Amino acid sequence: NLFVALYDFVASGDNTLSITKGEKLRVLGYNHNGEWCEAQTKNGQGWVPSNYITPVN
C-alpha cells in the first residue's frame, strides 16, 4: 500500500511520525475510527492523520 503525503505533518509525540508533502510512505494499518494510520517511511514508523495522505496511482 503505497501512499504519498498531501501536507507536511510535524510529529507531536513519541508514537507519531513527521512527514513532508510529496513524501512516499507505506500504510501498515488504521486506528478504530480511521482518523489515524500507522505509516512507515525511510525515516521511521508512526501514526499520521489519514486525511494527510492519498494512495499513489
Rank of each mutant, 00 (worst) to 15 (best):
residue 1 N to T: 02
residue 2 L to N: 15
residue 2 L to T: 10
residue 2 L to S: 07
residue 2 L to D: 09
residue 4 V to Q: 09
residue 4 V to S: 12
residue 5 A to M: 12
residue 6 L to E: 12
residue 6 L to A: 12
residue 6 L to Q: 13
residue 7 Y to R: 15
residue 7 Y to E: 15
residue 7 Y to W: 07
residue 7 Y to A: 11
residue 7 Y to Q: 13
residue 8 D to G: 04
residue 8 D to Q: 09
residue 8 D to H: 04
residue 8 D to K: 04
residue 9 F to G: 01
residue 9 F to D: 01
residue 9 F to M: 06
residue 9 F to K: 06
residue 10 V to W: 08
residue 11 A to M: 08
residue 11 A to C: 09
residue 11 A to Y: 05
residue 12 S to Q: 03
residue 12 S to F: 03
residue 12 S to L: 09
residue 12 S to I: 06
residue 12 S to T: 04
residue 13 G to E: 12
residue 14 D to L: 04
residue 14 D to P: 08
residue 15 N to A: 14
residue 15 N to I: 15
residue 15 N to M: 14
residue 15 N to K: 15
residue 15 N to C: 13
residue 16 T to M: 02
residue 16 T to Y: 03
residue 17 L to A: 10
residue 17 L to C: 10
residue 18 S to D: 11
residue 18 S to E: 05
residue 18 S to C: 13
residue 18 S to K: 05
residue 18 S to Q: 14
residue 18 S to V: 06
residue 19 I to R: 00
residue 20 T to C: 08
residue 20 T to R: 08
residue 21 K to E: 09
residue 22 G to Q: 02
residue 22 G to K: 03
residue 22 G to L: 01
residue 22 G to H: 03
residue 23 E to C: 06
residue 24 K to E: 13
residue 24 K to P: 03
residue 25 L to Y: 10
residue 25 L to F: 05
residue 26 R to D: 14
residue 26 R to T: 15
residue 27 V to K: 02
residue 27 V to L: 10
residue 27 V to M: 12
residue 27 V to Y: 00
residue 28 L to H: 02
residue 29 G to W: 07
residue 29 G to T: 10
residue 29 G to C: 06
residue 30 Y to P: 09
residue 30 Y to V: 10
residue 30 Y to L: 08
residue 30 Y to C: 06
residue 31 N to E: 12
residue 33 N to Q: 10
residue 33 N to V: 05
residue 33 N to S: 11
residue 34 G to F: 07
residue 34 G to P: 02
residue 34 G to A: 13
residue 34 G to E: 15
residue 34 G to W: 05
residue 35 E to R: 09
residue 35 E to S: 10
residue 35 E to P: 07
residue 35 E to Y: 02
residue 35 E to Q: 11
residue 35 E to N: 03
residue 36 W to T: 02
residue 36 W to R: 09
residue 36 W to D: 06
residue 36 W to G: 01
residue 38 E to V: 06
residue 38 E to F: 08
residue 38 E to N: 08
residue 39 A to H: 01
residue 39 A to L: 09
residue 39 A to W: 01
residue 39 A to P: 00
residue 39 A to F: 03
residue 39 A to M: 03
residue 40 Q to K: 15
residue 40 Q to L: 12
residue 40 Q to A: 11
residue 40 Q to V: 13
residue 40 Q to N: 12
residue 41 T to K: 05
residue 41 T to Q: 01
residue 41 T to I: 04
residue 42 K to P: 07
residue 42 K to C: 10
residue 43 N to P: 01
residue 43 N to S: 14
residue 43 N to Y: 06
residue 44 G to D: 05
residue 44 G to I: 00
residue 44 G to L: 02
residue 44 G to W: 11
residue 44 G to T: 02
residue 45 Q to P: 03
residue 45 Q to E: 06
residue 45 Q to F: 11
residue 45 Q to N: 04
residue 46 G to Q: 02
residue 46 G to F: 04
residue 46 G to R: 03
residue 46 G to Y: 05
residue 47 W to N: 08
residue 47 W to V: 06
residue 47 W to A: 06
residue 48 V to S: 00
residue 48 V to I: 13
residue 48 V to E: 00
residue 49 P to L: 04
residue 49 P to C: 02
residue 49 P to I: 02
residue 49 P to G: 00
residue 49 P to A: 02
residue 50 S to H: 11
residue 50 S to M: 14
residue 50 S to R: 14
residue 50 S to V: 13
residue 50 S to G: 09
residue 50 S to W: 09
residue 50 S to K: 15
residue 50 S to N: 14
residue 50 S to Y: 09
residue 51 N to V: 06
residue 51 N to F: 12
residue 51 N to R: 10
residue 51 N to T: 11
residue 53 I to N: 02
residue 54 T to S: 12
residue 54 T to P: 01
residue 54 T to W: 15
residue 54 T to G: 14
residue 54 T to V: 14
residue 54 T to L: 07
residue 55 P to R: 11
residue 55 P to Y: 15
residue 55 P to A: 12
residue 55 P to D: 13
residue 56 V to W: 06
residue 56 V to G: 08
residue 56 V to N: 13
residue 57 N to A: 14
residue 57 N to M: 01
